[in-house]
Amino acid sequence: MSIAHWSTMDTSTGPFTAVVASDGAVLASGWTADVTELTPLISRSLAPGDLREKRDLGQVSTAIRRYHEGDLEVIEEVPVRQRSGEFREHAWDVLRTVSAGKPVSYGEYAALAGRPTAVRAAAAACARNATALFVPCHRVLRTGGALGGFRWGVDVKRWLLAHESPERVAGLG
């Protein structure tokens, strides 16, 4: 029976919970204090047999804290594990290459994923992303720059994009 751990941390945008496999890979994460909002997002093939609360998730907890403090690249170092169809898994990998402060449109995201006409499939990959923040679906916008939807709320998405904006980052130096 596989065991996963979860923890909720306070962040600038409210509570953030992560579910982490025993090897340290994030299985689900998002801006909620309720782990039961995350567990249905985990692929059935990855679902842990036992889920236990743990105050400190090591590298994952450190990355969450450091990201919210301004180290925008730290999330790239954290392993994630999601399962779905071939395109969606590839699209999630591609999404991890979209840099902070350089959001892309859904059309650009589809092209980066190798299927420029598959805009709806790219949008579905964002919508079904279980590992928010670590697979930064908040970095995908509608054509023209409108925010579009976000599982964790448009206000959180707006905060994340402002947090990652080049103007803000330049002001830190």
Score class of each variant (00 low, 15 high):
Ala123Lys: 05
Gly149Tyr: 10
Asp155Asn: 13
Arg65His: 06
Val74Trp: 02
Thr131Asp: 14
Glu37Phe: 07
Gly101Phe: 00
Val119Ile: 11
Asp34Glu: 13
Glu76Tyr: 03
Ala63Thr: 02
Phe134Lys: 00
Ala125Val: 13
Thr62His: 11
Tyr67Asp: 07
Phe134Tyr: 01
Ile64His: 01
Val135Ser: 02
Gly101Asn: 09
Val35Ser: 12
Val154Gly: 11
Pro116Asp: 02
Ala111Cys: 10
Trp152Ser: 10
Arg120Glu: 14
Ile64Cys: 13
Arg55Val: 14
Thr97Asn: 04
Thr143His: 10
Val154Phe: 05
Gly24Ser: 05
Asn129Thr: 05
Arg52Asp: 00
Ala121Met: 08
Leu57Ala: 09
Arg115Thr: 07
Glu108Asp: 11
Val26Trp: 12
Gly24Pro: 15
Phe87Asp: 10
Asp56Tyr: 11
Gly114Phe: 04
Ser61Glu: 06
Val98His: 00
Arg83Trp: 09
Thr143Met: 02
Arg128Met: 13
Trp31Arg: 06
Gln82Glu: 14
Glu69Trp: 04
Cys137Arg: 05
Leu147Gln: 06
Ala25Trp: 07
Ala28Met: 05
Thr117Gln: 12
Trp152Tyr: 15
Ala118Arg: 07
Arg52Gly: 01
Thr62Ser: 09
Leu72Arg: 13
Thr131Gln: 12
Leu27Glu: 05
Gly58Thr: 04
Arg81Ser: 15
Gly145Ala: 00
Ser61Cys: 02
Leu41Met: 14
